[in-house]
Design a protein around this nucleic acid. Structure first.
Length: 647
DNA sequence: GCATTATCATGCTG
DNA sequence: CCAGCATGATAATG
């Protein structure tokens, strides 16, 4: 049974698969990708707006219909933009081709997706205005929409996680805040890219990272919450056609190869030694292979910071170049698919592999000046790199990882400490530190900040709890391998060699506490500046049970705090400004030397892929009493929301 | 239209 | 560290 004969559209009649023979996949001409000369051809990145001339990812438009089929052929995939019922479909209509099937699929789709939402329809309308999502945003996303959906997901997830942590230990309780948050978002329509499409998903970029499978669902990158193969079925005139959309490779089945552009993926099914069947996802991958369709590839990676959790890396588009059958470990036949990466995409998985080698010292990297500019002051080395120009080092400073109070008029707060034994326990209102946090433990079990707050109260050295207590996150030092690097046009900058999960502690702003910043001092953190307000916490209206009276994100700092990192400081002094930053600051207070001081602590605003520059909002001085500094500068952050200047 | 099914998830226990 | 378990959500399938 050869698949390459080109005669049959079913190369594997069920039940008569010859597992010993390598599966020959000469391309079937009649199954080559067919994109009609219409405005609805999918573009490779999905950004082609309807009404504009289509982009043909395979070069010139192909005319495979030239060779007439002798057997009933499946209807070629016309377009993945399934029209809404009642929506005009000018290109197709003028071709005189039936769209009944697509319309049927579309109406099925919208019905089934709204089925669950029906009971909370009121909420859905309320919620979409709340979050600012339109119906078309749900259908097709963009960078901002994807970001809003992800922020909403994790805000709710963190809050639910916090509530779970505070509950009594009950044997039956399974902590799955991710599923609950995902379910709420799916059922209230806080999701995007519901329209299935081959190729890239608008708003998701190659190299983007995710920490839960449900995040992939809500942004429409991979709609299966567990399944590794995302596919759909096209209703054809004569028969239905399965098409693969994407895969998640968890690495469980030795899928990774030496060549970063190649991935060997195993089919699904065949659990207890049975042969896998050419159906569902397996069939879809086979079809996509013949059609040479693009398939999204998401690679499940070990999280370097947390061995228990996984990072999902979007590695862009691949094509299935070869498929065959192997004998699996349990004896049954297993489908194998050889994925080959489409050239010209941003480096993602390959970059991760390079970083692993740098960290292990296997390969030296270009531009490395110093392995550790902290000279051992930090737990992890802070490398110094310049692959842009000849500058050898930033100006001299002394490395210090916390605050120094010199000639400051800061009035320390009254000290307070808890008497907990071992670790402070979430939900324990006998703990005075938890009480000062309005009864909420500020961090989740794995140390992630739950909400921005007026002030976070951490345990201090004189608290009776163990130093391992989770309520000391900002005092535990760097968690990542950071790197100071020379940017193209903004001096030195800061980035991480490890992926950073939203809400994780990055570092505090170390330096000397001063009464007033000197005019020429560019290394200043000043809490009196005006900062762009932004929403990071969960939306209390989303879920009654997650609500609380105090969800304020306004900072409440007892007295103005100005820190200069010109002479002494840590990695934070290298972080540049951006008007759409990926890091934010949070005031944190704890006791030291019988006094309590406020610290400025940085947390990840969103997931940050490795080697992405870390930035925060420097704020703007001047409006409320304090005079504008002499060094206010033109902003080069490049964001679409850029305010033009900062400082 | 509704229930069933398959699935490279998670978190936790042993 | 890993195997195994319980609880699951999604969308295709029947």
């Amino acid at each position: 049974m050869q698949g390459g004969s080109g005669q049959s559209s079913m190369p594997f009649p069920s039940g008569s698969i010859d597992k010993t023979r390598v599966y020959d996949v000469k391309p079937l001409r009649s199954l080559d990708p067919v994109f009609p000369n219409s405005a609805q051809a999918p573009s490779s990145d999905g950004t082609c707006p309807s009404g504009f001339s289509p982009f043909f990812p395979f070069g010139a438009p192909q005319v495979p219909q030239a060779s007439p089929p002798r057997v009933p052929m499946p209807t070629p995939i016309r377009a993945y933009r399934i029209p809404e019922p009642g929506e005009e479909t000018p290109a197709r209509a003028s071709n005189g081709e039936s769209t009944d099937n697509q319309k049927r699929a579309a109406s099925n789709k919208s019905r089934s997706s709204q089925k669950k939402a029906k009971k909370s329809q009121d909420l859905q309308i309320d919620v979409s205005s709340l979050i600012g999502l339109s119906t078309s945003d749900r259908e097709e996303g963009n960078r901002d929409v994807v970001n809003v959906v992800l922020m909403t997901f994790d805000g709710l997830r963190r809050r639910l996680s916090q509530l779970e942590d505070a509950k009594e230990l009950t044997p039956g309780l399974v902590k799955r805040a991710d599923m609950k948050a995902g379910n709420v978002l799916m059922s209230t329509g806080i999701r995007t890219n519901m329209k299935k499409r081959i190729g890239g998903v608008p708003g998701v970029e190659v190299g983007d990272i995710f920490y839960f499978r449900l995040e992939l669902c809500v942004v429409g990158l991979h709609s299966q919450s567990m399944g590794g193969i995302d596919y759909t079925t096209i209703r054809g005139e004569y028969e239905d056609e399965a098409v693969a959309l994407g895969i998640v490779s968890s690495g469980k089945y030795d899928d990774h190869t030496e060549d970063s552009n190649i991935l060997i993926y195993s089919g699904q099914g065949g659990e207890k030694g049975d042969d896998q069947k050419l159906e569902r996802g397996n069939l879809a991958l086979d079809r996509s292979s013949r059609r040479k369709n693009e398939v999204r590839v998401i690679r499940g990676m070990k999280d370097p910071a947390n061995p228990n959790s996984k990072v999902y890396l979007y590695d862009g588009l691949y094509k299935v170049q070869d498929t065959w059958i192997e004998k699996g470990k349990s004896g049954g036949g297993v489908f194998k698919y050889k994925f080959e990466r489409i050239p010209g995409q941003a480096s993602a998985f390959a970059l991760w592999k390079s970083i692993e080698k740098w960290k292990a010292g296997v390969t030296s990297r270009t531009g490395l000046i110093l392995p550790d500019i902290s000279s051992g002051a930090e737990k992890f080395p802070v490398s110094l790199v310049n692959d842009v120009d000849g500058e050898k080092a930033p100006g001299y400073f002394t490395y210090l990882h916390s605050l120094r109070y010199s000639k400051s008029s800061i009035v320390p707060l009254a000290p307070d400490r808890c008497n907990c034994v071992k670790d402070c326990v979430p939900g324990d209102l006998n703990c005075s530190c938890i009480r000062r946090n309005e009864g909420d433990y500020p961090y989740t079990g794995n140390g992630i900040l739950v909400s921005r707050k007026p002030l976070v109260h951490e345990c201090g050295p004189l608290c009776q709890c163990f130093p391992t207590c989770k309520n000391r996150i900002s005092q535990t030092g760097l968690k990542y391998h950071m790197e100071v690097f020379k940017t193209k046009d903004r001096g030195w900058g800061l980035r991480s060699l490890d992926p950073i999960r939203v809400g994780t502690f990055i570092c505090e702003y170390a330096g000397e506490v001063v009464d007033r910043a000197r005019d020429n001092d560019e290394y200043v953190f000043d809490t009196t500046r005006n900062f762009n307000p932004f929403k990071w916490n969960y939306e209390p209206k989303l879920l009654e049970e997650a609500s609380t009276n105090d969800a304020s994100e306004e900072y409440n700092i007892p007295s103005p705090l100005i820190i200069s990192a010109k002479n002494v400081g840590n990695v934070a002094r290298f972080m540049n400004h951006s008007c759409s930053p990926n890091v934010f600051w949070q005031p944190v207070v704890y006791e030291e030397n019988n006094q309590s001081f406020v610290h400025i602590v940085f947390f990840a605003l969103r997931h940050i892929p490795p080697l992405t520059e870390l930035t925060y909002d420097y704020g703007i001085a001047g409006s409320a009493g304090s005079s504008a500094p002499k060094w206010r500068r033109k902003c080069l952050c490049g964001s679409s929301k850029c305010r033009g200047s900062f400082g």
